[in-house]
Design a protein around this nucleic acid. Structure first.
Lengths: 224, 224
DNA sequence: TGTACATCAGTGAACGCGCGTTCACTGATGTAC
DNA sequence: TGTACATCAGTGAACGCGCGTTCACTGATGTAC
């Protein structure tokens, strides 16, 4: 997953011409993945959409499997970099558990909404044993976990080491947008608020004080 | 999903011999699905495992797609029947919200653990637009939802119609056993207890009283 | 009970299609002198 | 600046493989008389 040598997967371009071709291929593959799903991701479709040719494809990649791995690696790196950035952009030290939960859940929501759909689609691509999405999610959760556990004295649950990961998993499920196209689905903003409420009451046994819309932290706009 | 006419999918057997062959084919397909995953589910593999032949296969099904749909329909019906049975086997009327949550979560846990893995694998089979698993899960959740909403006066959450479905979704995530092979994963029994606690504190703002292991309702053995 | 016939069931070689991959070839770019 | 050459880049027809599907054939079962 954290391969220090992506050159193992691509034959590095030696002229700007082939570098552009590579980028077009990568872009086309991600486009297809998003628009038509993993089953439509054939070498033919990729080279047609990218306006190149099978020969050019195989000049870069030794096979389709390597392309998939390369895509997974790239998207994962990008997502992880943005995530670290978003995490670092916020000052977490002074916050109470309530604010921490609010911010953390908001971040989780943005992650779920972001282009990590690529990662999901990649994991489902046939002939791949990749689990880039699962790995990324685990990575993110681990980060938030340590954050929340830094306020362990405010957690009422008798076993914080169990409650924090499970609670985050639950919050993620509440945020899950895979059924959002359903017309009667609960809108995303409401889910964020509910996920915050759920996590807070589970960890601290506290209902969010005050009116309905309170206790919800503003969105960060992470993903450009 | 609830097709009243499965004969649309199979050519009905007219002798006991072919009925047995059909059963062997269905059994082999489910075996392969469970043991090797959807990608290994080829017509060749099915007929080899079932000790029959391609010709026999096409004497029953007009194509592989019909087999998949037939399997989805069958497994769905079986799972749904067991579910209704388990739901009916329990007396829910006199229970308080706390007991209701305990029983409901336990039931959910058993469903997740049961052979619905077939349904999950079927949904992932290539070339299928089936969503039998999602549909089944929705079916189950709807049942539990009405159950919990019958104690709406005990729910402190200001919007029970939102909180109940979201809370159940969250509980389901806590119970999710897809990472159970991970050696450091939280054991299933503990998850049941935590899912109960989570749901109860979210809906009623109540931490389970008393010691750790209390508040957990005994398992029902639904799935034989 | 026996025989003739129709229908059902089972078999596996052969076919076609879509896919990933190879390869012989043409053209573009960079470099040496 | 020009020329010769090597390397890089691009092309698309052709190949092979695995899959779902077809089909001509053999054998089993049921039924009529």
């Amino acid at each position: 997953m954290t391969d220090p040598d992506p050159a193992r997967l691509v034959n590095p371009p030696k002229q700007s011409r082939s570098r552009r071709t590579l980028e077009r291929i990568v872009g086309a593959a991600l486009d297809i993945l998003e628009a038509e799903g993993p089953d439509a991701l054939t070498v033919q479709a990729i080279v047609e959409r990218s306006g190149s040719s099978v020969g050019s494809f195989y000049a870069r990649f030794s096979g389709k499997a390597d392309l998939l791995e390369y895509l997974g690696d790239r998207v994962w790196r990008e997502a992880a970099a943005r995530w670290e950035e978003a995490l670092a952009a916020q000052e977490w030290d002074g916050l109470a558990l309530k604010e921490l939960v609010g911010g953390a859940v908001t971040l989780l929501g943005e992650v779920g909404r972001s282009r990590t759909s690529y990662l999901k689609a990649l994991d489902r691509a046939p002939g791949t044993r990749a689990d880039a999405y699962t790995a990324f999610q685990a990575h993110v959760l681990r980060g938030i976990e340590t954050l929340l556990l830094s306020r362990v004295e405010e957690i009422d649950h008798p076993a914080p080491n169990v409650a924090v990961p499970l609670g985050l998993k639950a919050a993620l499920a509440v945020l899950d947008v895979s059924d959002l196209e359903d017309p009667q689905a609960i809108p995303f903003e409401e889910r964020v608020a509910e996920a915050q409420r759920l996590l807070l009451s589970y960890l601290a046994g506290v209902s969010p004080a005050g009116a309905e819309s309170e206790g919800q932290v503003d969105f960060f706009d992470i993903w450009g």
